[in-house]
Each structure stands twice: as structure tokens, then as C-alpha cells.
Amino acid sequence: MKIEFAPKDVPLNRRLQTASVAQWVFSFILLAPLCIVLFVFLLFTRFWLISVLYAVWWFVDWETPSQGGRRVPYMCGLRIWNYMRDYFPIQLHKTADLDPRNNYILGFHPHGVLVAGAFTNFCVYATGFRDKFPGFTCYMLMLPLWFRAPFFRDYIMCAGLIPSDKGSASYLLRRKEGGNAVVIAVGGAPEALDARPGAYILLLAKKKGFVKLAMEHGAHLVPVFSFGENELFDQVENHRGTWLRWIQEKLQGIMGISLPIFHARGVFQYSFGLMPYRKPINTVVGRPIRVEKNENPSTEELDALHKCYMDALYKLFEEHKAKYGVDEDTHLSFV
């Protein structure tokens, strides 16, 4: 295979963009296990007290992730996230106003491999969510597993990430003052196994937990589609029914995280590596679906609202797909 190296005269601005995305990919893939190793390693050195004191802090601070976390606005506003935004680039598009007197659940689709669009739009301040939707604070759900990693849990909480369990979301949605936007990548980790260029397969047909959560708290639903999310990486062929897909699904069931085998480009060359391609991401926030509070919805009521949400998401995709380079004959597939 011939390797295509990056030219030596790449502008500094583009190098900074690449560096910002490289640190993000590193954080997503390797930082958590490295933090665990560091925690254990320090216990067997003269710096053992650092781990011991952190363990005490961890015990005292155990409930913080499930109680809104600990966002650090300064960290969310760092210039490094602007460089990350411009690498692809990523843009956030608004189709309707949201009332800050209410709470909302934003269903993000598709998950993609590393959820780049969701992180850049809703966790950090790079694409102007606060200006487009004034009065709101975003919280994005992430697998609870990552909040069990020492040091790493504190890092991800800085960006408004909270565990993806019912208790954590309910803590925010029951706030009567409103202004809370809980972002859920509805397809979750399993959907990442279908993330490849040109794929529009969403794990949604049987995903009703977020709809029931919205009904229980009277939180309005907002479909969000991120065009370009699946274009960032290639993935080893793992279609349903193959032995690789069977192994991946078994491991996902055991560990709670999916393990897509993905690749794209490198830092200094364009032929292979774990850096995403420079492909544009356009995240479109749809119109809100009004939800009346119903703490004990019937199966029929739940199914009706779930269908309403799927129809709204499908319509959102159809209305905007041509604008963002999707073929007219391409449609969403719900599984």
C-alpha cells in the first residue's frame, strides 16, 4: 500500500486543528485506561498518598455525576474546541425555538463511531448552542462505565457529561425551573457497529425508554439528526449475520461497550490511522414534540408517542438531506 504523506507546507492553523482532534481521539480511546493504570501505579510509589486522597475524594463525590455533574465553563470554552470544530468542520443548525421554561430530551442520531457531532455541539461551546438556544444548559449522557475510572470521571464531567442511566437524567428533568436539555444518543453503543459512510441505519424501532422518560417528567422531545456523522471513519465489514458482528455483539452484551474496528487517516499521512476524515458534519435540531406529563403511560400511549417521534425524525431527515449531500433515493432505516 502506497502511503500518502501530508505535505510539509501545511498551514499552522490546519496543524492545530489536527492536534486538537488527535487529543480528543486519544482521550476517547486511551485516557480512561491510562487513568486507571496511573491510579494503581501511584499506590506502589512514594506518591501513594495521591491515590489514597483521591480515593477518599471519590467516595465523598460518588453521587456527583448522577446529580448534574460538575461542568467547568472555562474548559468548555477553550480555543482548542474551535480548532476541533473547524477540522471537519461542524455546524449546528436550528429549525425552531425552544422554550427555556421547559425541560427537553434531545434525541441525537446517528451515534457514529465516536459521537463527534454531539460532543462538539452540546458538550463544549464551539458551535454556538448557547446563542442559538439561550437559557439552556446541555447535559450529554455517556456510559456509566466511564464514570468508574478515577481522574477520568472528573475530566469528562467538566464538559457536562453525565451517566446514561434513568436516575441521572431524571435528576435534571424533574427541575421545575426548566432550561435543561438532556442529550441522548438514542442508538447507543450498539449503533456504532453500523456506522460507516453511506449508512443510515438507526437503532430506534424498539428504543422506547427515552420516550417513557419524557412522558414521566413532561419533558418535550426534540429529534436531532447529524448529517455526516457516519462519514468520518471506515469500518471493517461486520454486517449482521457475520462472525465478526456476532463476536462484537456478544462482547457488547458483556462489557456494555461496543468495539467497532474502525480506521481512517493518520496525523502525518492520509492512508491509515485512527484520525477521522475531514468531512463536514451538519447537526440539525428539529422542532420540539410537546409531551404532557404522564407518570404511568399505557403501552398504547407510549407506542403512539414513539411513532410520533420516529415520524418527526424521518421528516427532519427528508427535509434536509439534499442540502447536506445525501442522495434523494436514500432514506432512513429503523431497526
Rank of each mutant, 00 (worst) to 15 (best):
R85N: 03
W62D: 15
W24H: 06
F233W: 15
E4Q: 03
K323H: 10
P7S: 13
F147G: 01
A55C: 06
V335F: 01
F225I: 05
A312H: 07
F225E: 00
F151P: 01
H217S: 02
L313D: 00
T137N: 06
W58L: 08
N180S: 04
E318Q: 14
P190S: 11
H306S: 08
E300H: 04
D303L: 11
A192S: 13
L244Q: 06
M215Y: 13
N230C: 10
G253M: 07
A219Q: 02
L332F: 10
A192C: 11
F272C: 13
F39C: 08
K315A: 07
Y324M: 13
H93S: 03
E4P: 01
A264D: 10
A159I: 03
T299W: 10
P33N: 09
V291Q: 09
I50G: 06
H320A: 05
N180L: 06
H217T: 15
I184F: 15
H331M: 07
D327G: 15
V124N: 00
R175P: 06
G286V: 01
H111N: 04
N238V: 14
F268G: 11
Y155E: 01
T283G: 02
A96H: 15
P144H: 05
E292G: 11
K166D: 02
A32W: 05
R265C: 03
E301D: 02
N180C: 08
K279I: 13
L302H: 04
A32Y: 06
E328W: 04
L316M: 03
Y87N: 08
C76L: 07
